[in-house]
Design a protein around this nucleic acid. Sequence first.
DNA 1: TTATTTTTTTCGATGTCCGAAAAAAAGTTG
DNA 2: CAACTTTTTTTCGGACATCGAAAAAAATAA
Lengths: 403, 403
Amino acid sequence: MQTLRRNGPLARIDLGKFTKLSPATVTAITSDLLAQGLIEGIESDEPKAPLSRGRPRSLLRLNPDAACVIGLRISVNTIDMSLANFAGETFLTQRISFDSAAADRHNFPDLLVEAIKSFTKQAGLDQNQIKEIGVAAQGVVELNAGMVVWSPAFNGREIPIVEPLQCAFDAHCILSNDTNMITEALHWSDPTKYSGTFAVVMVDYGVGMGLYLDNQLFAGASGKAAEFGHANHIPGGALCRCGKRGCMEAYLSDYALVRSASDLPEDTDPKDISAGAGALEALIEKAKIGDANALKAFADAGKVLGYGLARLLAMIDPKRIVLTGAGMRAFDYMEAGMHAGLEEALVTDLRQNFSIDVMPWNEDFIRRGLIAQAMERLDQDYTGPGIPQASVQRQDGETEALA
Amino acid sequence: MQTLRRNGPLARIDLGKFTKLSPATVTAITSDLLAQGLIEGIESDEPKAPLSRGRPRSLLRLNPDAACVIGLRISVNTIDMSLANFAGETFLTQRISFDSAAADRHNFPDLLVEAIKSFTKQAGLDQNQIKEIGVAAQGVVELNAGMVVWSPAFNGREIPIVEPLQCAFDAHCILSNDTNMITEALHWSDPTKYSGTFAVVMVDYGVGMGLYLDNQLFAGASGKAAEFGHANHIPGGALCRCGKRGCMEAYLSDYALVRSASDLPEDTDPKDISAGAGALEALIEKAKIGDANALKAFADAGKVLGYGLARLLAMIDPKRIVLTGAGMRAFDYMEAGMHAGLEEALVTDLRQNFSIDVMPWNEDFIRRGLIAQAMERLDQDYTGPGIPQASVQRQDGETEALA
DNA sequence: TTATTTTTTTCGATGTCCGAAAAAAAGTTG
DNA sequence: CAACTTTTTTTCGGACATCGAAAAAAATAA
């Protein structure tokens, strides 16, 4: 219900239209929520009078101050934090730096807790006003266990995230893969277009995937599904950062492109390749002026991508694939190769009824996905357990409800 | 509710335990169902008295005659039909032959309708007693459209199945992939073990896959997902029956094994390879006596399988993979290769927390899956739409309810 | 016969939803 | 400006699924 309220302030009758509930039910529910202080009436006499007869509609909106959530994105050397209110509006963001090379399972959780504490202090908020914390990290993330198994953002392995945060703050906390959050953000931004079964492939520093299956985010049995980048492409092929050979990532990510364009051998260790932030841009520039090596590297990568998507289509059959990530800035040079790969790898029968979109990359998607997901859980906290009880406003919230 | 009743005749109190409903609710529901004639009391005075005090439990069972469903399996040159009653017991099966080479979209539907008609007549049933028809076919099957896009069982392409049956009989009809039905049967036979997210890979005449994701059968956006066999393994690799090169199937199915063991070139057309029913057995016999070619063929196939499973694990992360199909009789000779493939293709992080089972192949699984699925839909027909109305027993059933 | 035990049923009560009617709050009209 | 029309919101009673507690039923044990 709240989710639908995210179409801006609405009158009860419109709520009924969105949710397909009867006006009677809408009144019942909204009056409960009003009593709980989660929503509030709005009486703006100014922009009224849409020249209508009848009783004027009285708009309802979420009470922005009812709760507040934090979205956290951990990437190499930086943490992006954002604070959003109950209406889903981000009102404060901050980017801090940390030393990825030194971060391990012992020191990182404390660092994170401190960062959040100072962030909330800066916002003038009390810690226990935060009801949800959503964390997204690059790499192999285990949702169920709430820990980052491996990530380029850390030196160590198996860094616990959820548990330390859960202890330090009185808030729900969940950890996800960054591409999953893009997927969530897309569904949130356009539920009609991005619904049912679709996949998001992000080509960037690494290669990640998010899957939306049958209208919900899919995470796999242990919560670390969709490791598209480390699905094998060629047995014994190019050396990947993960140590194995032939992963998709070893042909698509920035270091792979640099390696390929520089005619370095396939088994060159990714660590020895200098593929900084500008490397991809430089390569694109080269391609633009017709550099044969660069063009070939992109074309080859495109073909690999085509093969990867073909395997995805064969196994999952999504109706839509969205390509994004910094790597997609070079899509123009990869497109032909990608289609060739799809054509080579996929029977005609399976090569129908789907579309491939390229979406310009925007880091903000991850933040939006985090907030969207946090909001969803927030609503569940309030409506799900269904403890309307008296009209007691409880500050301690969900932990007790779980006991 | 009915689904739980498939644990045999139960007393109301046990029903409550299974369904976690209170005894009061159980009574309410069962008395409704009794009135509708879907279940019936059973008073067997014979095997009573489990030496207990108290009011004796009165057992309830499904009324076997309440409805009746047909399961159909279409494979090369044969159609297997089975009739099951409301209790899910198959009481008649029949196998008929037809000419796959001559079957196309024009003649096959009629053939199928006639086959079903004579089958029901033979069972002494009236056509309209059949409430559900479940069809499973090998090959690329499009659930949503209810048609077989391509199958080794037909010469033509895009054979409509659901629509002609729906017209000819007053019954729901759904079409599925045969491996999906094995998946369904496994979940049905042991819901605890086969739940959540697991995959079934069947290596047989072709290579198929069924996916159970988040506790339900996954069919993809257009209903033709899980074409594991035609996911690419090696770009430009061995020639597959589908015309493409490098499909998994081109390394794993019977013709592929024969081709590999006979040292035929990889681009030998599958049509020119004589890989009949006995071919695989012969190859296994050879392996048994230590034939190097046969052993190598199996070991190589095992490795391909390992790579394929690795890709599946990376993308979907199932907690369990079940291997079955005739091809798995040679598993002993493939196992080492498979593990090597997994090891080569999959990062350690992803190579944990899952199990691979081999299940002896039994064609009956498909029948059981078909019936299980038909039963599930049957229960939905009765309980779902929720038109308890008066106690009118309607013969025309769901078509009217849908209007 | 009375007590005990176990299963089943009955009897409210709660929570979610709906439809119909009533109430509220405007604008329109003569 | 009073009476009518229109639109939104609320109130009211009812349907339905579920539960807990108590009562009833049907057996054995003492």
